[in-house]
């Protein structure tokens, strides 16, 4: 990829964020704001002895433990962010290749020297790599707030907890892990992304109904015609969290390069080729 192609692709990504800033930027920021207010309120409301007790428990718990082993604690606030991210990603993908056909603005996009492949790729990169970035950063604010609050409280009770800097290091590292987990989650669900985009490029109306209805129908038909549950089992395996929650960068690469992951990405890619072709003569 030469620099000109890269610059052009960057503007396509900016375009996606201009259009979907509410879904991918505003919603995690608002969520972080709400949780932050709740945390502050809790800090003010919890009686002094309880806070002292909590800090002491933490001190005992953390004795002799490297701060990097407590990262799972810091990753917990990511759960609501990941849920919101998934909901927003589905809304985004269903409309990604549908909305501009509905309001005819596709003719404006098609009048520019941008290939359908580049357009579809920009949507995929947005949902797999950019959206998780904003979710992880917003969640990171909460993680950093927690680290600071624990350190300040500990200092005021003369407790010794791991040390501020190593807690901070653990916090920052867990932000990275939240990001990698979200990315891996998106890649793990890559066939879903391909499926939704294929329907988004194809349907003329009722995109949600078609996208999900067709899949449910397929599940049903398989059972009815072949008496098998291959698809259902496959969905079950894809939705089990075990496969994409990572606790280290090493985990990330190991899971990324696993056979199951690559098969899913390849299958999703086939569906994306379908979406690109569907868009060629669409209006």
């Amino acid at each position: 990829m030469n620099s000109r192609t890269f610059e052009r692709f960057m503007i396509l990504l900016r375009r996606e964020l201009w259009e979907s800033n509410r879904l991918f930027i505003a919603s995690p920021v608002v969520l972080a704001g709400l949780i932050l207010v709740a945390m502050l309120w809790a800090l003010l409301q919890i009686p002094e002895p309880m806070k002292r007790q909590a800090i002491q428990q933490m001190e005992t718990y953390l004795q002799g433990v490297s701060p990097f082993q407590v990262m799972p604690v810091f990753m917990a606030p990511a759960i609501p962010f990941v849920i919101v991210l998934y909901v927003c990603a589905v809304i985004y993908l269903v409309n990604a290749l549908y909305h501009d056909r509905r309001d005819s603005s596709i003719l404006f996009w098609q009048s520019m020297p941008v290939s359908n492949l580049a357009t579809v790729l920009s949507k995929v990169v947005t949902v797999c790599f950019l959206a998780p970035l904003f979710a992880a950063l917003a969640c990171g604010v909460l993680i950093l707030f927690s680290v600071t609050a624990i350190s300040v409280l500990a200092a005021s009770y003369d407790s010794v907890i791991a040390g501020f800097w190593s807690l901070l290091g653990a916090g920052l590292y867990s932000i990275l892990l939240v990001y990698l987990t979200s990315v891996l989650g998106a890649l793990w669900l890559f066939p879903t992304i391909g499926w939704i985009l294929l329907f988004s490029a194809y349907v003329k109306s009722l995109p949600y109904l078609w996208t999900f209805g067709a899949f449910i129908l397929l599940l049903f038909m398989e059972d009815l015609v072949f008496g098998t549950q291959f698809l259902a089992n496959w969905v079950e395996s894809r939705t089990s969290n075990y496969n994409y929650i990572v606790f280290s960068v090493g985990d990330f690469f190991q899971r990324l390069l696993s056979y199951d992951m690559l098969i899913g990405v390849a299958f999703g890619a086939v569906l994306l080729v379908g979406a690109v072709n569907m868009r060629r003569f669409a209006d």
């Binding site: 005819s104 020297p113 580049a118």
Partner: peptide, 17 residues
């Protein structure tokens, strides 16, 4: 997309997003 480097069009009023 290659053609659109040499050709441009306005399809109808109000198609800007």
């Amino acid at each position: 997309h290659k053609l659109m480097e040499d050709v441009c069009f306005i399809a109808d009023v109000g198609i800007l997003p």
